[in-house]
Simulated scan of single mutants.
Amino acid sequence: MSPIGLRRALKLHPPSGKKGDEPAGGRILIELENVGYSYGGGELLGDISVDLSPGSFHFLTGPSGSGKTTLLKLCYGALQASAGQVRGFGQDLRRLDRDQMALFRRRIGVVHQDCRFLDHLPLAENIALPLTVSGHDLSGQQENLGELMAWVGLTKRADALPPELSGGERQRAALARAVIMSPDVVLADEPTGNVDWEMSQRLLQLLIELNRMGKTILIATHDLGLIRAAKSQVQARVLRISNRRLQLAGADL
């Protein structure tokens, strides 16, 4: 699929933010400032400060249980920080009402670790579900939806039900669903955790293509090989969670 075709496919839904939603400086999309998160009376994350600027590419690494998924959830408002402040597109997430939070989340595409789908719906309808839920008429979007499915290599699986899909197909479908609203930011939680190396490279290339189109990418992963493969193609910042704190990883990765 050509970059032009992909750009056209990602215009399935116009940007849902308004000019007034942008930060005063205009350059930071999501910002965590001295953020902490406690669970069950214990601190899971503490004193976390990080910002995601337009067109940036980030990896988030650390051992299992270190809080990678928690940090991603803080970024898109699924969890509320116990301390500090999380800002999205210039807005304090604590101050957003339900409708404002829904608009905020439309600007963020999330590839979840468990890739849940509605098993009774064919794949194409599962991918288009964010459009359906947001009230858009799909009748005029079929060509663009087809372009998006071609981009992830799932054209021939459009009518397949989720239980019939392989692990790699599910991950690519999850990525297509995450970007169908043309988000500014894509957060991917261990997107290659359940696929082989060849498929992990294919998924990585799709994420790199999105970044080259200007999308901000944050990938949580424990796969250092994936990080090394990406750093030869894209300028990526590698963040590591260690002892509940966030550190900038060294050049030895």
Results as ranks from 00 to 15, higher is better:
residue 162 P to S: 11
residue 236 A to V: 07
residue 242 S to A: 11
residue 206 L to I: 02
residue 6 L to T: 04
residue 109 G to W: 00
residue 249 A to P: 14
residue 58 H to Y: 14
residue 161 L to G: 01
residue 67 G to A: 07
residue 27 R to Q: 06
residue 132 T to S: 12
residue 224 L to C: 01
residue 19 K to E: 09
residue 160 A to N: 03
residue 110 V to R: 00
residue 247 Q to F: 08
residue 101 M to V: 05
residue 164 E to W: 01
residue 101 M to A: 09
residue 152 V to Q: 04
residue 101 M to G: 01
residue 55 G to E: 03
residue 188 A to H: 02
residue 247 Q to Y: 07
residue 185 V to L: 07
residue 149 M to A: 12
residue 249 A to M: 15
residue 39 Y to R: 15
residue 141 Q to D: 15
residue 25 G to H: 14
residue 23 P to T: 10
residue 190 E to S: 05
residue 96 L to M: 11
residue 171 Q to I: 10
residue 218 L to Y: 02
residue 240 R to W: 04
residue 131 L to I: 06
residue 145 L to H: 02
residue 47 D to W: 02
residue 180 I to D: 00
residue 6 L to K: 06
residue 92 D to Y: 11
residue 226 L to P: 04
residue 60 L to F: 07
residue 63 P to E: 13
residue 36 G to T: 08
residue 116 R to S: 14
residue 105 R to I: 09
residue 26 G to Y: 08
residue 250 G to T: 12
residue 32 L to V: 05
residue 127 I to K: 02
residue 234 V to E: 01
residue 133 V to Q: 01
residue 38 S to H: 10
residue 198 E to A: 15
residue 97 D to P: 00
residue 89 F to V: 08
residue 138 L to I: 15
residue 235 Q to G: 10
residue 71 L to P: 14
residue 15 P to Y: 03
residue 244 R to V: 04
residue 212 R to L: 07
residue 211 N to M: 01
residue 170 R to Q: 12
residue 3 P to S: 05
residue 207 L to G: 00
residue 130 P to R: 05
residue 27 R to A: 07
residue 87 R to M: 13
residue 74 L to A: 04
residue 31 E to Q: 15
residue 225 G to N: 15
residue 214 G to H: 00
residue 179 V to S: 02
residue 144 N to T: 11
residue 23 P to I: 09
residue 7 R to S: 13
residue 227 I to G: 00
residue 120 H to R: 09
residue 132 T to L: 14
residue 134 S to R: 13
residue 241 I to F: 01
residue 220 A to R: 04
residue 242 S to T: 08
residue 56 S to C: 09
residue 222 H to V: 12
residue 183 P to W: 00
residue 121 L to D: 07
residue 73 K to H: 12
residue 10 L to V: 03
residue 237 R to S: 12
residue 179 V to K: 00
residue 51 D to H: 10
residue 244 R to D: 09
residue 123 L to H: 03
residue 55 G to W: 02
residue 175 L to Y: 03
residue 167 G to N: 06
residue 95 R to K: 15
residue 34 N to Q: 12
residue 79 L to W: 02
residue 244 R to G: 06
residue 56 S to R: 10
residue 162 P to K: 13
residue 137 D to A: 10
residue 158 A to C: 13
residue 231 K to D: 02
residue 225 G to M: 12
residue 141 Q to L: 15
residue 100 Q to G: 08
residue 45 L to I: 11
residue 111 V to Q: 05
residue 86 V to F: 12
residue 86 V to R: 09
